[in-house]
Amino acid sequence: MNRSDIPVRKQKIRRDTTKLRLIVFGTLAGLLILCSIFSKYLCPYDPYLQDLSIAKAPPGSAHLFGTDRYGRDMLSRVIIGSRTSIFSTLLLVAIITVTGTLIGVLCGWHGKKLDTILMRISDIFLAFPGLVFALAVAGVLGGGLHNAIIALAAISWPKYARIARSQTLAQKETTYLQAAVLSGSSTGKIIIRHLIPNIIGPILVTAMLDIGTMMMELAGLSFLGLGAKPPMAEWGSMMSDSRSMMATLPWITFAPGLAIFISVMVFNLLGDTIRDYADPKARGR
């Protein structure tokens, strides 16, 4: 074998795993999302139906994850909970990505006073410890899933605004944007058609990596009673409900915990893979 073949082959094998990982984690994430969309049809039992005669049943053939203290089927509750957990997380990430990016682009493009004011505001938000601030916001606004999303959105957008702003500043003076000006495109058109497609990469990667974090924080707020309200099935609040019985009925905590663990891991791994895929320099390593 020729010596020069060796590094080439090695590189090829590594690059293939990125693609493979992308397919695997992408499919898994897609399955989770599909599961949350069609959760209604996937539940073997009614997740809200209480039947005290079968309360606290351990995992078995009838109830795969057992039942909780009201006799509700845990598997069905975990499945229906995916709608709340996954959907609100995706909604939250979408909100912060869009608002953060818009504010960042506006600051970077416009500059001057607007930039100073908005960036100082984002500094204020960045100076607070995230979850504590979210607790305060959720506390002021009252509980409920909507308020938990608002609270987390309020503390999370500055990160995106920062990235979008620095990317905009880096792109602002590039020749192709000047060429677009000379082509008679309006500022709005230039931002939408030229600037945003060129800066969105790192923002999307951050958003993908944030899905896992946001899912945890949303579940955390619910666990503390500031998110979803009972009887709504949500993984964090389900764990909170059952924590007093952890020693005697461990499966009630186990099922939602496993669901959180799996989805956070899948979305984090997907985010990592997308980052590797988007950055060709990191791919060869």
Binding site: T175, Y176, Q178, A179, L182, H194, P197, N198
Partner: peptide
Amino acid sequence: MVFQMPVESFDPR
């Protein structure tokens, strides 16, 4: 106007 850097004067995407 025609710019100095031809490749950079077109949107890479």
